[in-house]
Each structure stands twice: as C-alpha cells, then as structure tokens.
C-alpha cells in the first residue's frame, strides 16, 4: 500500500500542496484530477520520488519513502513522464531494455531479455524493434516509452510479497482515441495483475470510465476523494472548474458522462474574447492575432 499522510509542500512562500492525504492499494487505479495548476503533477512527483516535505510523509509498502535507496525504489515503482526526449539514438529494443537497468549490473540475464520480448509483443511494436527510436513518430515513441517503464517493474514470476507501483503523468494527453484506450486498458490490466496504478488524467469521461478512485485537487488541497460517481457532482465541477455541466448516465454501460453545457460555455468564451485578457497592451483584437498565428 502507498500512503500519503498530511503532506504539505512549499516552494518559497507558495504553498503547492496543503495537507494532502491519500492511500492506494494493490489492484487499484487511482486517478488524480483537477484543473491546471491544482498541484497534480507535484503530488505525483512527491509520491514517486524522495523529496523533502514541509510536513507529513509518504510510505510505500509500510516503509517511509525517504528510507529507500534510489535502486530499491526503481525496482518497485516506475514513472511514465509527461514528456520525454525525442531524439534518442538507440534502437527500440535497447530503449525498452533500459527499463531493466535497475535489475542487472553489466549485462541483462535471460529474465530481462524475456520480459522485454514479452512487452514488445504485448504493445504490438515488433515491427519497430530494430528501428532507431529517434526516427519514430510521436505516438510510436510514446508506446516505446510505455514499454520501457513497464519493463522496469515487470516481474516474471508473480511476486505477491511486494506491491509495485506505476505512475502515469497525463499518459493520454497527445494520443488519438484508439491509443488512449490502449494505454488505459494496459493500466487496468496491470491493476488486475496486482499492481497499483496512480495516474494524472484530465478527461473526466475517461476518468469515470477507468478509475477505481478519484482524488480531485483544487488549489493545492484535496477537494474530494472517492469513487468517480461520488466525486463528480454538478456543483463540485462548477466550483472547481468554473463550468456548468450535464451529468448523463450511459444506458448501456451505466457509466457517468460529464458534458459541458455548451450554451453557457459559448457566452463565456465570447466574454473572454471581448475582455481580451491575453492581450491587454495591444490594440490588435485577440481573434485576429490568433488567426495570424
């Protein structure tokens, strides 16, 4: 189990996180949601790496995160970053093998080779195996990076003694509809295998489709914590995102859909444009500047 108790984190005089507590257990997909600047990525960083907190603590498998060595930590948790290097001069197979680096000293053993082979097959990237990473498209690179972080925490024999954690920072932000589902299906599959997945997601509908629990952040504190149906109420979304929404239940799956109220939204955008908040000092209207871009 991963547990954060009352964590408070400040940089300078700015309080980024204020008394945040959460817990995530094996087999759970926990989503951290909230508007831009709410502290989601900061929280994910504090849960996944050793940081000096102002208050509170993070424990992973009942042990304080500060007591782990970097290598021990690397073996029980992997992090898929929001953005990553685009011009690695290595072959795809070599990049994925990098995920196994914490597990061997000089050269990979059979287990490492086998795991990499398995992951390449599972992600359907066999045809890319010998390509140089830098020559791949953005979506292909993202899948290879996913493969690399999967390789990091994958074990051959199901090891139940120690829960492993998978952190995803906006993993679907630049993916098409199909690949969004692929990534989140992979995350869901991992939870069924006994992993614990903690992800930052923006799309409220994807969240209600996949999340076991949602932690809604707002201005550095926890606004609501629980199941998607419990967290996403009309009033709360209005309060946090400043947006009116309709909640619809899908008659087939029973899933909750959150649809922004477009009529109100349009009048609001118009208001933003006439107020010109991005372009205070210039006489050129914003919509013309946008066109010229």
């Amino acid at each position: 189990m991963l547990q954060a108790t009352n964590i408070t984190y400040t940089i300078g005089s700015k309080v980024l996180l204020n008394h945040v507590s959460l817990h995530a257990k094996a087999g759970e997909l926990l989503v951290i949601a909230g508007p831009n600047g709410a502290g989601k990525s900061t929280l994910l960083k504090l849960l996944s790496e050793k940081t000096n907190l102002d208050m509170g603590c993070v424990t992973i498998n009942e042990k304080d995160i500060m007591h782990y060595t970097p290598k021990e930590l690397a073996k029980i948790r992997a992090v898929l970053p929001q953005s990553f290097s685009a011009n690695l001069p290595f072959q795809v197979e070599e990049v994925i093998m990098m995920g196994r680096y914490p597990h061997f000293d000089e050269y990979p053993n059979e287990t490492d080779v086998h795991i990499v082979k398995e992951i390449i097959a599972a992600l359907e990237i066999e045809h890319l195996r010998d390509r140089v990473y830098a020559t791949l498209s953005g979506g292909e690179q993202q899948r290879v990076q996913l493969g690399r972080v999967l390789a990091q925490i994958r074990t051959e024999k199901e090891d139940v003694s120690e829960t492993k954690y998978f952190f995803l920072d906006e993993p679907v932000s630049s993916l098409d509809l199909y690949h969004q589902q692929i990534v989140l299906q992979t995350a869901k599959y991992l939870t069924q295998e006994g992993y614990c997945v903690i992800a930052v997601l923006h799309d409220l509908n994807l969240i209600s489709q996949y999340a076991d629990n949602v932690l809604l952040m707002y201005q550095g504190h926890v606004e609501a914590y629980g199941s998607a149906a419990h967290v996403f109420t009309k009033e709360r979304i209005k309060n946090v995102y400043g947006l009116d929404v309709h909640l619809i239940e899908d008659p087939v799956s029973g899933q909750l859909f959150i649809v922004p109220d477009t009529t109100l939204f349009n009048s609001k955008t118009n208001q933003i444009i006439t107020n010109k908040p991005y372009d205070n000092n210039s006489s050129i209207p914003v919509n013309r500047t946008l066109e010229s871009i």
């Binding site: 970097p70 992997a78 970053p81 990553f84 290097s85 680096y101 914490p102 990091q152």
Partner: peptide, 20 residues
Amino acid sequence: SKSLNTLSLGEREASYLGIS
C-alpha cells in the same frame, strides 16, 4: 557507461531508474 546511457533519457528519467 550504463548510467551514462540511461542519462540520455533525461536526468529525471535516469533518477527514476535508480541512478544517483
């Protein structure tokens, strides 16, 4: 060399992979 190879992923990614 293994650590330097990992570093090509970026400093943060290298530290996630257990490199100091």
